[in-house]
Amino acid sequence: MRNISDLIEQYLKQILSSSPGGAIEIQRSDLAEKFSCVPSQINYVISTRFTLEKGYYVESKRGGGGYIRIQRVDLPNLEAVQRHIQLTIGDQIDQTAAEGLVYQLEEACFLTPREAHLLKAAMSRDTIQLKLPLRDELRARLLRAMLVALLSK
């Protein structure tokens, strides 16, 4: 059985995909009521599963008529993706940012689920057991090399 966070994420992605502009505005309290949970659960899902690294821009307005706006940031073509990779990775990349980039590329269908799974395993701090900052530097070099090889197929 899926947990409430998975259900909320799935629901938000479903309404995002059917939204003509690729953006939605929701009220935290309405969504919490729909899923019979506390508003902080909605905050948790949005802050952990709808990040810029994962391809989403989130804007929040608090107060009486407050809302949360979630917009999908699409990667349009391979050239733009390669630029995005160079900008995102840089000389170092931490595990969270690396996993976010892999997630974004998988969501945009530039990577298969199997390729994404392999990349995440290779980028894990359990796999690269070095001290910082060497670990983040090695992760950046490995991730860049693997993505160049995968995306130039």
Rank of each mutant, 00 (worst) to 15 (best):
A145S: 15
L132M: 12
H117K: 14
I8W: 01
R135Q: 14
D30N: 06
E33C: 06
Q27V: 09
K120F: 00
V45R: 13
G64T: 12
R83K: 13
A32C: 08
Q71R: 15
D94G: 07
M1H: 15
L142A: 06
I128F: 03
E33W: 05
A97Q: 15
V38P: 05
S60T: 13
Q71V: 13
N3Q: 09
D6Y: 06
G90E: 10
R141Q: 14
V58Y: 02
K34G: 05
L12A: 00
E79G: 03
R28G: 03
A32V: 10
G90H: 07
I70G: 00
K131Y: 09
G90Q: 09
V81N: 05
Q14L: 04
L101C: 11
L105R: 04
G63N: 05
D91H: 04
P76V: 04
L118R: 14
I15P: 02
P76C: 01
V45G: 14
I15Q: 00
S152A: 14
A32S: 11
T88L: 06
A122E: 12
G21R: 07
N3A: 02
G66F: 03
G66R: 03
I4A: 02
L111Q: 03
S17G: 04
N3T: 08
A32R: 08
K131G: 13
K13Q: 02
H84G: 02
L132K: 12
E25Y: 02
K61E: 09
L151F: 06
A108Y: 04
P39C: 06
I128M: 13
E33I: 06
L78I: 14
Q95A: 07
M123D: 07
R125F: 07
G100I: 09
E106R: 08
T112F: 06
L75C: 05
A140S: 08
V102I: 15
S40F: 09
I24K: 01
I89K: 08
S5C: 05
D91C: 05
V38D: 14
S5Y: 10
A23E: 07
E59S: 10
A121W: 05
L143R: 15
M146Y: 10
G22H: 00
S60K: 11
R135V: 11
T127I: 08
G100Y: 06
S47M: 13
K61W: 03
L101Y: 06
Q71S: 14
N77H: 07
A98D: 03
Q10R: 12
I8D: 00
D6T: 12
S40T: 12
N3I: 07
P133I: 08
A23N: 04
Q82L: 11
A98C: 10
D6E: 15
S47E: 11
A145G: 13
I8A: 00
D94A: 10
V38E: 13
P133R: 09
L119K: 11
Q41C: 07
I70K: 00
L16E: 02
R125S: 10
G100S: 10
E33M: 09
I42S: 06
G90D: 03
Q71L: 10
R62K: 15
T51V: 06
I85C: 02
E107G: 10
L147D: 00
H117S: 14
